[in-house]
Design a protein around this nucleic acid. Structure first.
Lengths: 357, 357
DNA sequence: GGTAGTGTGTGTAACGTATTACTAACCAGA
DNA sequence: TCTGGTTAGTAATACGTTACACACACTACC
């Protein structure tokens, strides 16, 4: 690979001159010199080394992005939106799949920090941020996506999230309004702040009308860790099968996200249940698939485009501005999108005796 | 940030000694010295600068990965599998969303090359690789994923792909066997090698039984570029609506990938068509969603785990071994997965007069 | 003729690490 | 005492770039 010195030698000038050309500082440069340098660059097929530049300048216009898994369409979509928003501001994005594993997360963070990256968006949101305190103290600015900052003060610089609690309450209220009383909540291991908030929202809304959620109806999957988001649909299917083969099955399921909801629909159908006639299902996120599946899914929409924009803007502000963003923590309103996977509860007797096997 | 020099000073040794400790060369080192260095590292919270290392060593254990879009579940899944395979071999992966745009692709490649990356897996597969010739000549090794090497000799170092033609033929044969004669092919802009191969496969198989595909039944979407993979489902839906409202609609649709197929099912349902009773739909890829949707999708499975493994292994071999992999180009067999989105053709009269509006 | 100003470039010290060649100390054997 | 070999650690250099101070040749002006 040709370096700046080779170019300088070929053009018969000093390296500084070449550097000036590369960086567009040729205002007061002889036309002949400029041309000779440009020719040498073209001839040698020279590309400046980004690495050397970084080493010299001490920082780099790149943001880290840690997500549970791009194999999950929600996070795949978010990743793309974040990348687009960052690119627009001259930043690149480094995507890391952390599989909701705190150790992997910390490893990635170390590696990002070694690359001189000073800002990272954290899409996965474990309850505790303790494993990231060290990095935060070393100067890594962390932006939390999809989780409020509560519980991570001093570690998280900014955050953008939907009001998880409100979202869950909207969904629950909708189901209650349709006459459902036995509402199940399904999720994978509940180790993230957003999931906890969603569950609490359900409980809060139910208790407002004098109902409460039976412990049995909170399905959290195999407690064993290591379940990435690729299995979400599969877990949702299992959840539905387990819940619906019980003696007194729920008439509605609120899933922690759309992938679980899709899986739940599938599991229910396998048992002969029709959605929404025999079982109502509500998801969360409103991924593209939700609109297109059969039946179209009732779900809680997160305004992801807007969230991605805000997140990137906030994080870049904390990096570039002396005193950071004026309002570092923003919480947006989710929106309930009613489609066809929910319906009024049928007479429960007919379900119990009719459809069940 | 503490540097190696700070550590050396604190421990009272030279920088080289610290370097030796970091890189595990402390076999013949005094126990006391070793301990002092380790303590200093811990106390200063020192992390070696990856950038400086790269600059010094001249290369880096990172692979580039250029995909059309991680928002497409197929590519999201592939990205994750490739990352896992690379990590296992001590390599990291840099994911880039190129949106099937040759210019963006070339830009990313330049940026990767500036980062000293010497190997990139190309998931998007435009027909022509000319825009990458320059990078290949500068020493970037390119591995083509999901497309054969034909037409890219001298630019692509290795490739892993499914036999696209065979996959399309399996799907077509299946539909023919069910009595379908009017089979539509739907896809976005047909600017990639894999898509062309799939279309050709359909045509070849049809002509084997004396049928041929009507030009009108090849639906390629709006020719305008810029359609990323996030719109795939939406395009599939539009395709179905357009095809099925014609005078003499097809009885089966073969979609270029599962997202289009899912969209097509949705579009068909909106018009009152039942899948598979009134319309058979076949996809390609076998993404997770295919099994779980309603009806479960008949599709052509790509063995993505195996492909990711092979791709990473091949590319690393070309980087590390003098003479590269023994067999750089591998083509795997796809498999037809028959589920419930395909069925025998009904009497065509009943369709024409009965269901259509 | 001296000073200042302007237009063009050059020389060199960093950035944080890895590597090479080197030194100093010690020991064993003749 | 000398040679040779091992061990433990050091000093110096290079990696490719950028930023800053400086050099040189003109012109202009008092």
């Amino acid at each position: 690979m040709a370096g700046i010195k080779d170019v300088a030698k070929k053009a018969g000038v000093s390296v500084s001159t070449v550097s000036n050309v590369i960086n567009g500082r040729h205002a007061k440069m002889g036309a002949r010199t400029l041309r000779r340098v440009q020719e040498a660059i073209a001839e040698l097929n020279y590309t400046p080394s980004a690495v050397a530049r970084q080493l010299k300048s001490g920082h780099i216009k790149t943001l880290g992005l840690v997500v549970p898994s791009v194999a999950n369409p929600f996070w795949g979509n978010v990743s793309q939106l974040i990348e687009k928003a960052a690119l627009k501001r001259g930043y690149q994005v480094l995507i890391c799949n952390a599989e909701r594993d705190p150790e992997l997360e910390a490893n990635y963070m170390t590696s990002l920090q070694g690359s001189l990256i000073r800002g990272t968006i954290l899409g996965s949101s474990p309850v505790s941020f303790d494993h990231l305190r060290e990095h935060s103290e070393k100067g890594m600015h962390i932006g939390a996506f999809d989780r409020a900052s509560r519980g991570a003060e001093g570690i998280v610089s900014c955050s953008v999230s939907v009001d998880q609690d409100l979202g869950a309450r909207l969904a629950t209220r909708h189901l209650i309004g349709l006459g459902h009383k036995k509402i199940a909540f399904i999720s994978g291991p509940i180790g993230t702040s957003s999931r906890i908030a969603r569950l609490e929202g359900v409980q809060r809304e139910l208790s407002k009308v004098g109902l409460s959620i039976d412990e049995d109806l909170i399905w959290l999957g195999p407690q064993a860790a290591g379940f990435g988001d690729s299995q979400a649909a599969e877990l949702g299917r299992t959840a539905a099968r387990e819940l619906l083969t019980r003696d007194d099955p729920p008439t509605a399921i609120f899933a922690v996200n759309d992938m679980y909801a899709i899986g739940a629909c599938s599991g229910a159908r396998e048992l002969g249940y029709r959605v929404p006639d025999d079982l109502s299902v509500v998801g969360f996120d409103d991924i593209i698939m939700a609109k297109v599946m059969e039946p179209p899914l009732t779900t809680v929409r997160q305004p992801v485009e807007q969230m991605a924009e805000l997140m990137v803007a906030r994080l870049i502000e904390t990096l570039e501005d002396e005193d950071g963003p004026a309002e570092p923590h923003v919480i947006l309103r989710p929106e309930l999108i009613v489609r066809s996977s929910t319906a009024a509860r049928k007479n429960s007797d007919s379900i119990n005796s009719g459809t069940e096997k």
